[in-house]
């Protein structure tokens, strides 16, 4: 009872904002931690991107090659052609590291392509709904509501099962399940911007709708959209891996992490590395995007926290 209440439940450091003009020591250290989070997670992401671009050139992966003599070999095994399989080999004698590098290419390509497609659709829908309002807003937002009350992985599984496994189809499926987030964020931003003085001023000067949207509104919504895109990128990569794991994502000829992890399931007793190592690789990338997204949001737009 004689403990001070501040000790038991101190104020949350996260929700106090420093007054303008002076930066308190706690705030400064928080900014430093925020910057550190951004730098570290960006470095990890950059490492993956470099590995995805350069890796397959250094360590070629041939999806149809099989080498039964060196199947299910543990990490560190020296293959007949002289190079060391650092992460072991899989059930047909393929180097797991080579597969992961190729898989990084697939995952990152699918992730970025999905965000571009979902982003374009979502931002267009969000601007249309927010700027023009009326029945268009009504229809688009009810559509978004319907989709949000439908588990997104279920919709993705359903559409993917009908389109069949291919890289392009995965991008389409995941874009369909992700446009809503972009549409909602854009709409709420546009609603706030529409009546701001600088937009009114531009309109008074005789600017047409197209000019207003592309020159006044869109530049102001870019930052929040980029923050949302970073957070979503991790989710999209995770969803792609889940679909591929279920056999509904990328085809067997384009190995992605989900597919490699699924293949390793049957060899857990004698070759733990096939599932374990690509899973760690996937988790580290997704965590980095999560941390990066959170840090960017805290830094640039804390109001997006609720999205």
């Amino acid at each position: 009872m004689n403990r001070s209440t501040e000790q038991v439940l101190p104020q949350s450091a996260d929700d106090s904002t420093p007054p303008a003009g002076e930066v308190r020591p706690a705030a400064r250290s928080r900014v430093r931690i925020g910057r550190l989070r951004i730098i570290v997670s960006l470095a990890v992401v950059a490492f993956y991107v470099v590995a995805a671009v350069v890796g397959p050139m250094l360590l070629a992966f041939d999806p149809v090659a099989t080498d039964l003599g060196s199947r299910l070999k543990p990490p560190g095994f020296v293959l007949p052609d002289g190079h060391t399989a650092i992460f072991g080999t899989d059930q047909v004698g393929q180097d797991v590291l080579a597969q992961m590098l190729q898989g990084a290419r697939v995952s990152i390509t699918v992730g970025v392509a999905t965000l571009v497609l979902a982003g374009v659709i979502g931002v267009a829908a969000g601007v249309a709904a927010g700027y023009f309002g009326g029945w268009l807003d009504m229809v688009l937002m009810r559509l978004a509501d319907i989709q949000l009350t439908f588990p997104s992985i279920l919709l993705a599984i359903f559409i993917a099962s009908i389109l069949g496994p291919s890289v392009v189809n995965v991008v389409i499926v995941l874009s369909i399940s992700n446009w809503v987030t972009f549409a909602r964020v854009t709409r709420s931003q546009v609603l706030g911007l529409k009546s701001r003085d600088f937009v009114d001023a531009t309109r008074t000067l005789g600017a047409r709708t197209w000019h207003l949207v592309t020159r006044s509104i869109l530049p102001s919504v870019t930052a929040p959209i980029l923050v949302v895109a970073t957070v979503e990128l991790g989710h999209v990569i995770l969803a792609e891996a889940s679909l591929s794991f279920l056999g509904l994502g990328t085809p067997a000829s384009t190995p992605s992490w989900g597919l490699t992890i699924a293949n390793g399931r049957d060899y857990l007793s004698n070759a733990w590395w096939i599932s374990t190592i690509p899973g760690i690789g996937l988790a580290v990338l997704v965590i980095s995007f999560g941390v990066l997204g959170d840090a960017l949001r805290d830094r640039f737009d804390p109001r997006l926290r609720s999205m």
């Binding site: 989900g258 857990l268 899973g279 965590i287």
Partner: peptide
């Protein structure tokens, strides 16, 4: 919390099988 949110559930499941069952 960050780990539970970011790790793919199918992979966590496989790891559980690997550790607790195998």
């Amino acid at each position: 919390a960050l780990l539970s949110q970011s790790m793919p559930s199918f992979w966590i499941g496989i790891m559980f099988i690997l550790v607790f069952a195998r």
